[in-house]
Protein backbone atom coordinates (compact mmCIF):
# COMPACT_ATOMS: atom_id res chain seq x y z
CA UNK A 1 0.00 0.00 0.00
CA UNK A 2 2.85 2.39 0.84
CA UNK A 3 4.28 1.84 -2.62
CA UNK A 4 0.91 2.51 -4.27
CA UNK A 5 0.58 5.85 -2.47
CA UNK A 6 4.20 6.73 -3.29
CA UNK A 7 3.68 6.06 -6.99
CA UNK A 8 0.26 7.70 -7.22
CA UNK A 9 0.93 10.91 -5.32
CA UNK A 10 4.27 10.86 -3.46
CA UNK A 11 7.07 13.38 -3.91
CA UNK A 12 9.56 10.59 -4.66
CA UNK A 13 11.88 10.69 -1.66
CA UNK A 14 15.59 10.79 -2.54
CA UNK A 15 14.69 9.93 -6.16
CA UNK A 16 13.69 13.60 -6.35
CA UNK A 17 13.13 16.02 -3.44
CA UNK A 18 10.58 14.35 -1.16
CA UNK A 19 13.01 14.16 1.75
CA UNK A 20 13.90 17.85 1.38
CA UNK A 21 10.30 19.09 1.22
CA UNK A 22 9.48 16.85 4.19
CA UNK A 23 12.31 18.43 6.16
CA UNK A 24 10.78 21.89 5.69
CA UNK A 25 7.43 20.66 6.98
CA UNK A 26 9.16 19.03 9.94
CA UNK A 27 11.64 21.77 10.85
CA UNK A 28 9.59 24.90 10.09
CA UNK A 29 6.02 23.62 10.00
CA UNK A 30 5.66 24.83 6.41
CA UNK A 31 2.53 23.92 4.48
CA UNK A 32 3.12 21.94 1.29
CA UNK A 33 3.16 24.82 -1.21
CA UNK A 34 5.47 26.93 0.90
CA UNK A 35 7.83 24.00 1.50
CA UNK A 36 8.03 23.19 -2.21
CA UNK A 37 8.70 26.82 -3.12
CA UNK A 38 11.40 27.09 -0.44
CA UNK A 39 13.22 23.95 -1.60
CA UNK A 40 12.95 24.94 -5.27
CA UNK A 41 14.44 28.34 -4.53
CA UNK A 42 17.33 26.83 -2.55
CA UNK A 43 18.06 24.33 -5.33
CA UNK A 44 17.70 26.89 -8.11
CA UNK A 45 15.02 24.88 -9.94
CA UNK A 46 11.33 25.34 -10.68
CA UNK A 47 8.64 23.80 -8.47
CA UNK A 48 7.71 21.55 -11.41
CA UNK A 49 11.27 20.20 -11.46
CA UNK A 50 11.02 18.99 -7.85
CA UNK A 51 9.44 15.68 -8.86
CA UNK A 52 11.43 15.15 -12.07
CA UNK A 53 13.83 12.26 -11.49
CA UNK A 54 16.10 13.30 -14.37
CA UNK A 55 16.54 16.92 -13.30
CA UNK A 56 16.77 16.12 -9.60
CA UNK A 57 19.15 13.22 -10.15
CA UNK A 58 21.61 15.65 -11.69
CA UNK A 59 21.01 18.37 -9.10
CA UNK A 60 21.40 15.95 -6.19
CA UNK A 61 24.57 14.56 -7.72
CA UNK A 62 26.03 18.04 -8.31
CA UNK A 63 25.20 19.19 -4.77
CA UNK A 64 26.07 15.88 -3.08
CA UNK A 65 22.65 15.46 -1.46
CA UNK A 66 22.53 11.67 -1.66
CA UNK A 67 20.78 9.68 -4.38
CA UNK A 68 19.08 6.36 -4.90
CA UNK A 69 22.28 4.77 -6.14
CA UNK A 70 25.22 4.34 -3.79
CA UNK A 71 27.83 5.61 -6.23
CA UNK A 72 31.49 5.35 -5.22
CA UNK A 73 32.89 8.67 -4.12
CA UNK A 74 29.55 10.46 -3.67
CA UNK A 75 28.24 11.62 -0.27
CA UNK A 76 25.93 9.08 1.40
CA UNK A 77 23.97 8.90 4.63
CA UNK A 78 25.26 11.34 7.24
CA UNK A 79 27.67 12.94 4.75
CA UNK A 80 24.75 14.00 2.56
CA UNK A 81 22.74 15.25 5.55
CA UNK A 82 25.47 17.73 6.44
CA UNK A 83 25.09 19.21 2.96
CA UNK A 84 21.28 19.20 3.18
CA UNK A 85 21.32 21.08 6.49
CA UNK A 86 23.62 23.75 5.05
CA UNK A 87 21.72 24.03 1.76
CA UNK A 88 18.29 24.39 3.36
CA UNK A 89 19.51 26.50 6.27
CA UNK A 90 18.00 24.19 8.87
CA UNK A 91 19.15 22.30 11.93
CA UNK A 92 19.18 18.52 11.46
CA UNK A 93 19.13 16.81 14.82
CA UNK A 94 21.33 13.86 13.86
CA UNK A 95 23.87 16.15 12.16
CA UNK A 96 24.20 18.24 15.31
CA UNK A 97 24.53 15.08 17.37
CA UNK A 98 27.25 13.77 15.02
CA UNK A 99 29.21 16.99 15.46
CA UNK A 100 28.90 16.76 19.22
CA UNK A 101 29.74 13.06 19.51
CA UNK A 102 32.69 13.29 17.12
CA UNK A 103 33.95 16.36 19.03
CA UNK A 104 33.96 18.35 15.77
CA UNK A 105 31.34 20.88 16.79
Amino acid sequence: MAITHALAAGMGGVRTTGDLVARMQMSRGMRLGEAKAYVAEKLGVSVEDLTDEVVMGEVRQDLGLGRVHAVAGEPKGMEAKFRIARLLGIEINSVNRFLKKSSLG
Binding site: A2, A6, V14, G18, V68, A70
Partner: peptide, 10 residues
Protein backbone atom coordinates in the same frame (compact mmCIF):
# COMPACT_ATOMS: atom_id res chain seq x y z
CA UNK B 1 14.77 -0.21 1.38
CA UNK B 2 12.07 2.43 1.79
CA UNK B 3 14.61 5.18 1.05
CA UNK B 4 16.33 3.60 -1.94
CA UNK B 5 13.63 1.42 -3.49
CA UNK B 6 10.17 2.59 -2.40
CA UNK B 7 10.51 6.36 -2.94
CA UNK B 8 9.68 7.11 0.70
CA UNK B 9 9.90 10.80 1.65
CA UNK B 10 10.32 9.97 5.36
Amino acid sequence: THERAFGADT
